[in-house]
């Protein structure tokens, strides 16, 4: 589903698009405009088969593609109080949360999973941009801490997929405090001698970039991902000049020494399998479609 199908009412939509096929079967690539059949797009992990543009993907879909046998165990994340400040802008914060839960089917913006990647037990933490722009609130902090504590207990590496517009303004200072909170979690992992790999996806900005998303032992990004502290619009307003092409994109950051690698989503599984086994001093990986590990019961799909 693209944002139009989510936000524009079907009736209004039909006035403009007048498509002869049912809704949501075709998705237009925002980069090259190619119409992509939904099943084909899902198989390609939401990467345009024509131009290679990486669209957003839910952590759940990502984890299915990443873990051996597509199987993982979702780890519980302590649920924070819904609205600590009683925040209200044009909408009440609890209403925004309810909408985000309905839209994504998730409790919060961060999902934590345990599984095996190339037969190596790994904790994956994935941020869901569809959930209030993936913004960093207390649930995000809780998820990172829960994932790290489990990794320390199991002595296994952590891979974190970042995607966020920044901090969750509706949680005010408590969202800002997730910067030091998540940093403590990263330190716990490092002191336990366990690898912490960050995969930056489109977009990763603000307080998220300025904390756990930039503290990885290895920093990977998906192609074309916007990665920044201040967004391009804010900078253009400040310096009053146009920014160069590709500014703050993954490849630009790679050129400026801010990343280790830019890796396409379809290569990510092999990349991580190799990297994690190298970092944990394990035997070389076995590639290919591995069945689900026996230790983790298959989940209903």
């Amino acid at each position: 589903m693209n944002w139009i199908s989510n936000y524009v009412r079907p009736k209004i939509n039909s006035l403009f698009s007048r498509r002869e096929v049912p809704e949501n079967l075709w998705v237009k690539c925002p980069a090259c405009g190619t119409m992509l059949f939904h099943r084909e797009l899902e198989d390609a992990l939401n990467v345009c088969t024509s131009c290679g543009h990486h669209m957003a993907i839910s952590p759940r879909d990502r984890f299915r593609a990443l873990f051996d046998g597509g199987v993982f165990l979702e780890l519980p994340v302590p649920v924070p109080v819904a609205d600590p400040l009683g925040f209200r802008d044009q909408k009440k914060y609890p209403d925004r949360l309810r909408e985000a839960r309905k839209k994504t089917g998730e409790d919060g913006a961060m999902l934590v999973a345990e599984g095996e990647i190339g037969r190596l037990k790994t904790i994956c933490i994935g941020q869901d941009f569809a959930f209030m722009a993936g913004s960093m609130g207390m649930q995000v902090g809780n998820a990172i801490i829960a994932g790290v504590e489990r990794a320390v207990q199991e002595r296994c590496p952590v891979v974190l997929f970042a995607a966020a517009g920044g901090a969750r303004m509706q949680e005010g200072i408590l969202s800002l405090m997730q910067m030091p909170r998540s940093t403590v979690a990263v330190q716990m992992l490092k002191e336990a001698g366990l690898p912490y790999v960050v995969v930056l996806t489109d977009p990763t900005t603000g307080g998220v970039t300025a904390s756990y998303a930039m503290l990885g032992d290895v920093q990977i990004a998906e192609p074309g991902a916007l990665i920044c502290f201040a967004g391009p619009r804010v900078i253009e307003q400040t310096i009053r000049e146009t920014l160069p092409d590709g500014f703050q994109r993954a490849e630009y950051l790679l050129d400026h020494g801010m990343l280790d690698r830019v890796v396409a989503r379809k290569e990510m599984r092999e990349e991580l399998a190799r990297l994690l086994r190298l970092l944990t001093n394990s035997t070389p990986p076995v590639f290919g479609d591995l069945p689900a590990p026996e230790a983790i019961p298959a989940l209903p799909r």
Binding site: M214, C228, F229
Partner: peptide, 19 residues
Amino acid sequence: PGKGAEERGQAEAIARSTE
């Protein structure tokens, strides 16, 4: 929020300082 600041890793510098 400037061009050079971003190019030289504003986010990373803040993250490391907090760390």
